[in-house]
Design a binder for these strands. Structure first.
Lengths: 186, 186
DNA sequence: CTCCCTAAGAGACGGAACGTCTCTCAAGGC
DNA sequence: GCCTTGAGAGACGTTCCGTCTCTTAGGGAG
């Protein structure tokens, strides 16, 4: 028998891992606090002591799973086109990892971390554009905000609305047919 | 005492009205089959005989509430810009009417009426562009599909992600800064 | 080293809503 | 006027919620 009792950060990491595993096993809709507690071999109270409800737990589990924010590693390939594509690929990858039902579930039950998502992508694109302007690829980094976040907005739309995973073709279409033409003639 | 027993279409309309009223009263998250049944002064079985679950009932109630599809009345103002703006205003209006939590709830619990939404908007935009081409406003109606649904995709993204209702400024920005420049130079 | 406070672990609990079922009796077709 | 259908009503077992209580292990304070 396991006779050691987990505590503090070690326990918390176990709980978040259990939540993530449960998420993969049964999906967001069927994820229950009881299920997570059972998987972590503990009681519900231990969960409720840390997170007020399912949504908070799941958000914490997602954050725990994928380390830092996307703003921490902005792609820098030396080409605007490749940088933007890299950003979009990162988003697509996260979608694949997380799964659509989780996205919808969190969207439905969460109050407001959506603004945060917007802000992060705007930061990332700002950096990408500033570098492109510094290289002389585009005349100025002073692109209208709506155009700046156009690629990430479109990808987000695909993630939320489409059931199939994003294809590379979709990403290049967004960049080559829509984004680049608009910024090139700023 | 009410001694008449409702039947068929009349009853169904009452049920859908009750579902809609309940939706407005308590929101999607708190809507229950029992609540709707009570409001319609009937039993749960009457609901389950027609719809398998909450999501189906709510979708039916939404459809019942707002008559036909948007494809039935495509705006025809004589100007491409105004037509597109009219389409986007219709979407914004529906958002205001329906409410964001309902959008998220349905998105989370529904299997696949999302493709349908895509198709309808693509039809609408096809008509709008064909008329514009016939008037000579644009060289050809043969616009790449992704550009065609660009305005509606962006508005949908705003509806799903932003909590505040869409402003007129946002709509004109989408049309004037993004959509028109892209279609004008075919 | 020992005491003691905090929180882990375990489960009982009342409540809400689910979806199924059973039963009676009105309505409307034949 | 008979008979099939399904409306109306509520009981039922189940699942999960979020709260609570109780015992006991861990680890810091002295």
């Amino acid at each position: 028998m396991e006779n050691t009792r987990r505590r503090g950060a070690a326990l918390e990491a176990d709980l978040l891992d259990a939540a993530w595993t449960e998420l993969q096993a049964v999906g967001y809709a069927r994820l229950t606090m009881e299920g997570v507690a059972a998987r972590a071999r503990t009681g519900k109270q231990v969960l409720y002591r840390r997170w007020a409800n399912r949504a908070e737990l799941v958000v914490a589990a997602l954050r725990h799973r994928q380390g830092g924010s996307m703003a921490d590693q902005v792609p820098d390939t030396g080409s605007l086109r490749e940088d933007v594509l890299a950003v979009l690929r990162q988003m697509a990858e996260r979608q694949r990892d997380i799964g659509q039902d989780v996205v919808h579930g969190v969207l439905a039950e969460i109050g407001e971390p959506r603004v945060e998502v917007f802000e992060i992508m705007r930061e990332v694109m700002t950096t990408v554009l500033e570098r492109a302007a510094a290289r002389g690829e585009i005349p100025t980094a002073d692109v209208p905000p709506r155009i700046m976040t156009l690629p990430t907005d479109l990808v987000r739309n695909e993630i939320v609305m489409r059931s199939e995973p994003l294809t590379e073709a979709t990403l290049t279409e967004i960049v080559d047919e829509i984004f680049l033409p608009l910024v090139r003639r700023g």
